[in-house]
Structure formats: C-alpha cells, structure tokens
Design a protein around this nucleic acid. Structure first.
Lengths: 349, 349
DNA sequence: GTCGGACTTTGAAATGTTTCAGAGAACGTG
DNA sequence: CACGTTCTCTGAAACATTTCAAAGTCCGAC
C-alpha cells in the first residue's frame, strides 16, 4: 500500500482503523482521545515509522516552530556563546533554532534574511552588519518579530539587547589608570562600528575625568577586529618612539587583544610589566591564554537568552512593547594587567 | 483584499491579471513565459511584497532546499570551521544550512535528528556522539542522505569523511622524537573515543618502530577534551617524579594543548625548553597562542566541503555509492616544539 | 482560407496536515 | 423511556504552492 513512500497520516489512520482527524488529535490534543484508541494509533505510528511532515503542519497551522539567529562572524567565539544562550531559551519553548552566519557581508545577510522570510520563521534574532540597514526596517514592516543582538538601532521600531559599551570603555580604562598607567592605547576599528565608537567614547570620558591629557590616550585604528589585526596593531605599537609608546592597551575585543598579546610576547615584551592589555567580551579563550587576559565581560549567554525571550514575547503577546535591554559589563581582572607580585586573590569571574 | 495577510500567489495573479499557474511559471520556469507577462507579474510581486511560502512549495514539490549539520561541540572552533566549509558548498548548490549542536549529549542529538526528519531536509551531516548509535542506522534505512564527519562508522552503510588519525598520531610523535625528546606524554580521553584510540595507536606505533621503550610513552587520560581538562592534565604532569616526567606532550586536540600550555607557563615552565607541546586540529587559536602551538593540521573547511558534496551526491545521483573519504593530516611546526634558537624558517602551513 | 506547429496560458488536481462543526454513543436523571 | 450531558470520533474544508494536460493564440505556408 505504501510502496516506498514515507507514510502519512492517512496511512496511519487506515492501519489503526480510525479517521484522519483522530490521528491528528493523538498528536496535538491527546487528552481528547480515549486511551484505547490513542494506544492503537500510537502503535500504528511506530509500526509504520511515521514521521510528521513539518511543512504540511506549518502550512495548515500557519505557525512555524523555529527561531533563527543570523550571526555576524563565525570565527568569533563570542557569537557562538550568544547562540548557545538563544538555543537554551528556544529549547525551553520547544522550538528549533536556525543558525546562519553572514560573515560580516551585507549581501550574505540579505540572502539569509530572504530565506528565513520564505520559511516563515517565528522570529529573527540578528547581529547585523549595519544596524541602520533598510532591509531590517522591511522586516519590522512585515511584522516579523525581530530582535537586534549586541547592537542598538537608532530607531526603536524593534527590540534590542546589548551591553552598555560606554560604561565598558570606562571601566577598562579606569582599571588601567588604577594600575598606574599614564599613557594608554585604544585599539579597534573600523570606527564606523557603533561598538568601537562607544567603547572609545567611554575610554575618553573617564580619561579626561581623571584629569589626564587627551594626548595620552592614543587611538590606533584597525581594519577589522581579528587576531591578525591585533598582531599588526602590536607592530605599529612597537614602532612608536619610546617617549610616545603607551604602557597599556585597551582592545575593542578579545580577538584583537589575543593578537596583540601574541605579537608582544613574541617581540620579547613582558606582559603586563612592559605592556598591560585589556580585552573586551571575555570569551573562553581569554582566560585560557598563556597570560590570562583581563577583559570586560559581557554576559554572553544571558544576552542570547534575553533576546530569545523578547522575540518570543513579540511573537506571542499581542500587546508586546518594544524594549531596548541593556546589560552592565563587568571587569574581569587577570594576569595581563595585574602583575603577579601585586596580584591579590583569585581573578573574579 | 489582502487585509493584513501576507500576499499569496493568488493575490499576485489577480494583481497582474493572469492565472495562478503563470505566476508559478514566472518563479520556476521563467523561460516558458513571454517577456511581457513575466515583467507584469514581477512588478506585481514587488508591489505586493510577495514572498514565496517555502512550506507550501516544499509540500507540493516534495523536495526541501536545506541541508543540516549536527555538530558535536559548539565550544570547539574546529567544528565551526567544518560548518563553514559545509556552508560554502551549500551556498554553491543554492541550499540553506541548518546548524544544530548536540553538545556531546546523545539525547540532544536524537531530538535534533528527529526534528530534521520532520523537516524533510535533503541531507544530514553529523559528527555523532557515538558513531555506532542505532539511530544513525535508522536514518539510512529511511533513505535520508547521511554523511558522518570527522568520524568513521564501523559499518559502511553511509558515507564518511575523516582524517587518518593513526597517521596523525605518528607524525606528531615522530616530530617530537626528531626534536630529541626521549620521554613523551599522550594526553587525551576518554579512550572510548575512536579518535583518541587511533591517535594513541599511531603514537605507539611510531614510538616502538623508533626502538623506544613503551614505558617512555606515558598515557595521561582525561575525562573530556576541553581547555580545563588540559589544565588539570598539566597539574598531574607536574606532579610526576622528576625521573618519570616527560619533556614533551602530545595532546589529542588543541583545546587540551592550550590548557596544558597555559597551566605550564603559569607554573613557570618554559615552552618548549622545559616542556614541548603538540596539539591536534590546528584551530585558529593554535597559531594565536602566546607560544604558537605546533599542531597536526586537519583540513577543516575541506572536510566540511567534501562531506557536503557527498551528501549532495547521495541526494541527487541515483547510482550513488557510499564512500569513506580519508584526508591526510599534516604537521605544522611552531614555537611550542621548536625553540627559537634552532628554529629555521617560517612555520609550514 | 485552412492547416500545422510553436509558443503561451489556463484550471484543476494534488501534496499532508490541522481544524471544527457536528454526528454518534454511552450514561445518568427525571 | 425521553432527555440532556459528556465523551469520542468523523469528514470535509482549508492552507499556498507546483504540475500538467489541455486549451488558446499566433503565424507562416500551402
């Protein structure tokens, strides 16, 4: 009867001697069907190896069971931690998570979004290449629940979850100042990135409020935020005349910091004695570096989890209000800024 | 007419003054429709903001446009590189990639597979928790194209793509022997893992073929393959009596090696002079470590790409033959085994 | 004019679910 | 025994697309 096809509800119904509707009820509202028939239907299902066709389900029911996250950069573990947080929340809500990666290319991002629209996913979480991109407005206009993660949009026509980057910049530089550094580099770029801009702004604010001269906070721009960029920033740092050379660097993310760390040690500098380094994000590998990295910690999983909850609220709650969640970053001091001698106690985690 | 609904083919047809079938043709076989109507239909589509409903398409057409990868451990960048390779191949074939993460838990793996079955994905790539698990056979029996990545199944009822782990173990230990080490540790576990078993086997083979005593190749088992396990292995290493203490360690993956490296440096050892370290996988962070890590390189992206091609072949080619692809690993020597003095030339890549 | 062929377009069937109004059955109550 | 309730189950409609046989239309050739 089946001749090779994968069995459908109809086949199960026939095998169990009941109607289509009953089989559907067994799957969706088991409480309305009597124990005896339910059992019969269930036996038929396993005997036939029935697997519900999700496309048909979705088509009829009009609602999909998946969320999607479009991440910005698959090579940065930070985003995987965020994804992990989203996945946990999705699991709780019994949804699947579709993970895409735009690799910082706007065109890939658009392709992914288009496909997700076609799939009619329940909601989209995204760390966009450009938070101001018009295709994001397009999504809101279409009514797709949308949450921007780790960025903020100028407009407030969608939810967002981020960290207070200005504050992050402040605490990083404040920490360096406390350690007695009088000349500090800020490494990051391109400065079109909101995050870079804000972290730098925070750094400048605290620096001047401590009465230091702006000339002693040196901005070393990078093309991107990868390990390689960190390494090349290190070379530029080493090339500065000794008088101008900073004794500490604040990197806009951990990848940069790790690259800088590697380059510096390779060049024979002692970290933190010759050069202290602070990163941002506190990814797993920050603590695992040979000189464990001081970093500004973002609650990575929490970010993802909160974003997922917002998107679910927008998807299910008819009087959802857009909100812009902001988490507070936290300094995690480790050996890359605090020399062994003066180190008191274990690093905070 | 639309009153809020998202527009369907029917609406487009009405707006363009043509029939349903014609709109479908415009999307699927544009060559059969005249330029004039095609243009009219296309204009109607953009005006209405039409987005094709993938569920309905799939239901009717019977074929999905997505591949899936179930990765083993989201915290290991290795798997993300594999995923990246798969994604590239999928992109070429104009397919989407669904990424799932089992986090080394068999139960999560089963949940994911079940969902993917429901979605009727075109094919599944997986790095399984247990390559012998019966639910994998189940998939083959159902006729879902399946490729096992970075593992091999005992049975050859599906394709697999992996690296010659025995050879990997040989070249790692051969390299250490060449550097003059006479007592070497192998760190990895649990040894129920095929990979651990084979890498250790390779290590032992070459060691004895060099005429060394088995007693001088010390197996330090770990519970898992994380950075933390590497660190604790370092502590155990340091605890050995000086006579028995190895001068070099071969770790079954880079995460272990990184943990060991960190612990060793923290304990005041010089790497490679007091302890040389070789990892496995050659993840991005291996090269970026403060003491760049010598590692056995797997062609990570290639692995993914090849796996994707196999699964596509199985999905589309009626006389597909299962094959077990095996790549050849390659040693990348860096500073963690070759001290600066004796280092000649740039590291091979 | 009419015929044949090439090119376009149409309309209905089919895909595998869910939903829902209503049909039956079973049962206690008056 | 008629009636209302409660509990199960049924069958048809609906979802948005693709497919395909068949119907139209156009055009040049005879």
């Amino acid at each position: 009867m089946l001749n090779g096809r994968t069995p459908s509800v109809k086949d199960v119904a026939a095998a169990a001697g009941v109607s289509l509707g009953t089989v559907s009820n067994v799957m969706n509202r088991p409480e309305v069907v009597s124990a005896r028939t339910r059992e019969r239907v269930e036996r038929a299902m396993t005997e036939l190896g029935f697997v519900r066709n999700e496309s048909a389900r979705q088509l009829r029911a009009g609602t999909s069971r998946t969320l999607a996250y479009v991440m910005l950069d698959g090579t940065n573990p930070f985003f995987h931690d965020v994804a992990q947080g989203i996945e946990l929340a999705a699991e709780d809500a019994d949804l699947s998570l579709f993970i895409c990666n735009s690799n910082s290319r706007a065109s890939r991002e658009e392709v992914h979004l288009d496909r997700l629209l076609q799939q009619r996913v329940q909601g989209i979480l995204i760390t966009p290449v450009d938070p101001a991109a018009p295709h994001l407005d397009e999504l809101s206009r279409r009514g797709v629940p949308l949450v921007v993660v780790d960025r903020v949009r100028g407009v407030d026509n969608c939810c967002s979850v981020a960290v207070d980057d200005v504050l992050g910049g402040r605490i990083a530089v404040e920490h360096l100042a406390e350690q007695g550094h009088e000349r500090v580099a800020f490494i990051g770029g391109p400065d079109s990135l909101g995050q870079v801009k804000e972290r730098l702004q925070g750094a400048r604010e605290i620096w001047s409020s401590l009465g230091r001269s702006p000339d002693d906070l040196i901005y070393l721009p990078t093309d991107a935020m990868t390990v390689a960029d960190g390494r090349s920033a290190g070379e530029r740092l080493a090339g500065l005349p000794a008088r101008r050379r900073p004794t500490a660097a604040f990197c806009a993310n951990d990848l940069l910091a790790l690259g800088l760390l590697q380059q510096s040690i390779g060049a024979g500098l002692r970290v933190p004695d010759d050069l202290a380094i602070v990163g941002f994000d506190d990814i797993e590998f920050a603590a695992a570096a040979a000189v464990p990295l001081t970093s500004v910690r973002q609650p990575r999983q929490e970010l993802g989890r909160a974003a997922a909850q917002l998107v679910l609220d927008e998807a299910t709650n008819p009087d959802h209000k857009h909100s812009q969640l902001q988490f507070t970053p936290e300094l995690v001091a480790r050996a890359s800024t605090v020399s062994r001698a003066s180190f008191s106690g274990a690093p905070r985690r």
